[in-house]
Design a binder for these strands. Structure first.
Lengths: 131, 131
DNA sequence: TATTGTTATACTCTATAACTATA
DNA sequence: TATAGTTATAGAGTATAACAATA
């Protein structure tokens, strides 16, 4: 059931994100950066569970699109700090609005109590999945 | 959250299935056949949402392993009926026992009411995802 | 002409290994 | 020596196109 719902969610999300010029992983990375700027690209890759070598080309694209910046960490010049730009923040929040709307519609069919329990349980399982 | 939980589930399931000599898609196909024997390979592919061309090589493997049989449909000789063998049923139910055990452990942390609501909501969402 | 099963091919996604620059 | 970032390459997974048999 989880796999089936996830696939349906991805199918529903992709055209929405494409309308904002984003890929699925691009959106995930921007979302993560929206929560906290990345101390390093490696940390960012681990936070979103994405391969660090693929993250690089993704960051190349997002940087080229002006959605984020990369600058050497003054404390460790091997590492690079990644920050959202103003444009990146606006694209992210605009995409998030549409994604949230889609999610709301999906959950509309569920009774209120069941819906709250679902979200609570999902959060706990997702947190458990991190370990 | 759905994607993260799904990935964690797959990670947890793979070693279990491997112990029974099954792949993830092999288990999915056997499970589907356990619910209802397939009227055709195409119908089976659509039921589990798997590419029909990939299903063929998967069925080749499962048939070669003695877990299922393929025979021409007398009513439409283009199509082939797919049935679980006795061995296939035993392997399926043995694997399912272990998978269910893992799932139970995962849900153990949730309060009873939340857990029931989760399963009910998942079933409804998964059903909705079919359309 | 359309459909089932099949094969071969091309393509995308993902993981591995090797290199550089810093520490 | 170990780590962050990078690149190139190999591999797995997936989708596309074409074909034979049957409807």
């Amino acid at each position: 059931m989880f796999a089936r719902i996830t696939r349906a969610l991805i199918t529903a999300e992709e055209p929405i994100l494409e309308a904002h010029g984003l890929t699925m992983w691009g959106y995930i990375v921007l979302s993560q950066l929206g929560e906290q700027p990345a101390g390093s690209q490696l940390a960012l890759a681990q936070a979103v569970r994405y391969d660090k070598t693929r993250l690089i080309v993704l960051l190349d694209q997002l940087e080229h699109a002006g959605l984020l910046t990369r600058r050497p960490d003054p404390a460790d010049r091997r590492a690079r700090l990644v920050d959202l730009t103003g444009v990146g923040e606006r694209v992210l929040s605009a995409a998030r609005v549409d994604i949230r709307k889609m999610e709301e519609e999906l959950l509309e069919g569920l009774p209120r109590g069941q819906r709250d329990a679902l979200l609570c349980a999902l959060a706990r399982l997702a947190e458990g999945a991190a370990t």
